[in-house]
Structures are given as C-alpha cells and as structure tokens.
Design a protein around this nucleic acid. Structure first.
Lengths: 224, 224
DNA sequence: CAAGGGTGTGACGCGTTTGTGACTGGTTTT
DNA sequence: AAAACCAGTCACAAACGCGTCACACCCTTG
C-alpha cells in the first residue's frame, strides 16, 4: 500500500488522524523548526504556514530545502490571502506551490491527491535565486542568467551555503562547518582554494564575482 | 549545557518561567528602559514591544544597540499589526527582525530555535545607526547615508568601538585596549594615525567628521 | 589493475595593511 | 616672545593575508 506522509507547521481546525483512503495510507505529523520528528519512507508533503510575513515561513522553506532528510519533500506554502508578491517570494524560497488558506482537511487531501494522480510531484521546482544567480537544489545545478555553472560537488555546497547567508561575512571556520566537514580537520587556508575554484567556475559561465573577500575575516556573498 | 537568555519588555499572557528544553536552558527576564537587569552569558534574545509604557519601542531598540552590554543581542520587534512602514522603521532602529503579535510562548520559542539551528546565527544581521552613520556588524560594513565607507580591518574596528561609546572621551589607551591590541605594545601616537585614516575614509565617502579631538585627552564620537 | 577526476595541502609571490619616526603647524604655558 | 606641548600628516619598511599553482592522495569507473 502506498504511504503518503503529510507534515504541517501548525495545528488545523479539524482533527487529522492518520487514516487510509483510496488504497493509500495517510499519516499526519507536526513539523517543527528542527525538521520532522520522525523519519519516513515514501513521498513527503509539507505544508508551511506563512505565519510571519517574510520570516518564519520562508525561512522554514529554505531549511527544508537545505536539509538532506527533507530535500525531496513537496513543500506547499499556506498563504493567508492571495498576494502576488507573497506567492513569488514563496516560490523563490523553494516552495513547490502554494494554497490560499485557511487550511482544511479537504484542502490538504485535494491538493495531495491531485498532484499524485498527475505525477507532478517529482519534477517540482526546487530552486531559489539571488540576483543573476539561480540555485537548483533538486538538480544540484547552479546558473548565471540561464547559463549553467559547472560545479563539482564541494563547490556546489560552498555556493549554496554562501548564498543562504548573503550579505554576511562568513569566516573560514563557518564555511568549513557549514559544509559539514569534520573528519579530518580541515586547514582553514584550504577555504581559499575552494573560493578560488568556485570563482573560476562562475567566471567561466560568464558570471560576475559575487564573492567578496573581507581581509583577515572571511568571505561574503554580496547581494545587490 | 547551552544557555539562551530571553528578555521581554512586557508580560505575556502565558507564564514564562525558566525551563530546560532540548538540551538548552532558557531563562526569561523583563527588559526595562534601563536595559537588562542582570548580566548574562551566552546568546541573548530581546523581544521589544512596539508600544511600551514611558518609552517608545523604537527608542528602546536604539538603546539596546548603543549599549555595549547588549550590542550582541538579537532583537526582535513585536508589531501589533503588519504595517510595512512600521517594519521598515523597526529594522532601521536596529532590530534584527520582527514578528506580528501578540506574542505567545510558542512564538518566542519557535523564533529562537529557528535562528539557533541555522548554524551561523551567532551574528544574525546586526547593525545599528547613529545619525547618518550606519554600522553593519554582519557584513562588516559602514555607510554614511547609504554611501559605503571603504574601511580597512583596523579602521572598522576603531569606528565600531568609537560608535559603541558615543559622546564619551576615549583616551588613546582606551582605544588601543578597545581594539584588543596587546602584543606588541602599541605607541600611543599611532592612534593619531588611525584616527587620521578613519577620518579620511569617512570623508571620501562624502561624510562629515563625527570624530572630535579633545586636546590632551583623546577622541570622542560626537552624536549630535 | 589502470585511468581519471575530485579534493586537501604546502609553498611561493604579490599586493595591502599597518606601526613608526620625522616633520610641520597650531596652541598653551612660562 | 620663547619654549613646551600637542595633533595632523607623510613616507617607508616590515609584516601580514590572500590568490594561485603543482602535487599527492583519495575514490570511483572501466
């Protein structure tokens, strides 16, 4: 039997116990800032409340995208009202689509069933863009104005981490930790080489240099 | 165990005793116009109400930013309703972000946990302004009325220290210590050169001269 | 096992930053 | 008025930090 896992960032008005419907087993669970409380198998849907404009909801979106456990989840943003600007921002933050709230049990199921039967749920867009740069989490590919940037795995991780913290000086230590490097301990100077390789890759895709060196401190991804 | 200190300018509807959650110890305390009532170790979060008795929330924000004890705090502004203009003013006054009230226990914790688990939160966008001068601690950049001031590392440290102690004469010794210069001992006259270079940098960004010399004593950052 | 791409590291060279001494011009003191 | 004091500025050498390269060591593929 197919399993469909649905995660929500907030309680709904209606009770949402797990149940079976139409040959599928549906499970519901809360989704907190730390991510899902349990590991699941099978497709995963996340409904994220807009709750605090520009902040919590969008941030949650980005984190779901960055988290390896949930990178494959289908993320639906729950908007309170139909604001075009908000829709755009939701998609930019990595949401696959959106619904206009309030969220009800039938709204959730309709959404999931519709997408499942159409088979759309796999090629949903997972990307966000900063200026001319586009980062596609699903394809693990980056683009500069449509021109693909050829990146090695480590360079992609580096670019993603820098882009997730724009306009903010990241020390070499931050970057090493941000890429999850622990064993063996990495020499900080190695980061310089990473940056150099990343810059070269962006350049050879015709891009500019969004990576600014802050002498004696670290590096910044410059937005604007 | 990690400690997270949360300060609020007003009572909440719910009780907020100190407690332990998820390997972290949370402490709550009131935040008055004089600032925090106790010194704390570890990261500090401040939730400032838009309206508070005797003192506007914005003014409170500025004070937190100007006070050396709390300059590292993460300040969240609590708005009553979602007014874009108010949001802008909150951020300009030095708030790191904002939420739309009313504030509840879960709202506070979600916010703190979300930022904490983001990895680099140590310096969540943190900046403050004094007159025409803006100092961005996260991007390590200073501006004079939106015009960026090109500063070398030492000059930025100097400006930051001066701006953190406005309207107060700092001796050359204070400045040397404030910049953490120990080895080798620095000649006091060197400070003159620092000041000269900093003034020139501000000037070439179209700025005025907020640095006043106090003969035979030291220098002051003049704030009106 | 061989080949090849990805990655970490030491070393080299260059540009920038920075502390200092010296000189100058202004102000206070005697 | 002379002397003493003080701050602004310049030029310079030493130290520092960063970009880059070549190389060695993976780890994967055929």
């Amino acid at each position: 039997m197919d399993v469909v896992n649905i995660f929500l960032t907030s309680e709904l008005g209606e009770s949402l116990e797990d149940f079976v419907h139409d040959q599928r087993r549906f499970t519901f669970d809360r989704l907190g800032p730390e991510g899902p409380r349990r590991l699941v198998e099978g497709p995963m849907w996340a409904f994220v409340d807009w709750v605090m404009p520009e902040l919590a909801g969008l941030e949650m979106c980005r984190r779901l995208r960055a988290d390896a456990r949930t990178v494959d989840a289908h993320v639906t943003m729950v908007l309170e009202e139909d604001d075009p600007e908000d829709r755009r921002r939701a998609l930019r933050a990595g949401a696959d689509d959106y619904v206009i709230g309030p969220l009800t049990r039938t709204a959730v199921l309709d959404r999931v069933l519709a997408l499942q039967s159409r088979g759309v749920e796999r090629q949903a867009t997972r990307w966000f863009e900063l200026g001319a740069l586009t980062i596609d989490m699903a394809a693990l590919q980056a683009r500069w104005n449509e021109a693909p940037i050829v990146l090695r795995p480590n360079e992609f991780r580096l670019l993603r981490f820098l882009a997730e913290n724009p306009n903010r000086v990241l020390t070499r230590e931050d970057l090493i930790n941000g890429l999850g490097k622990r064993e063996p301990p990495i020499d900080e100077r190695t980061v310089d080489v990473w940056i150099g390789r990343l810059r070269r890759a962006i350049k050879s895709a015709g891009g500019g240099n969004p990576l600014r060196t802050v002498r004696s401190l670290g590096y910044v991804f410059d937005l604007n």
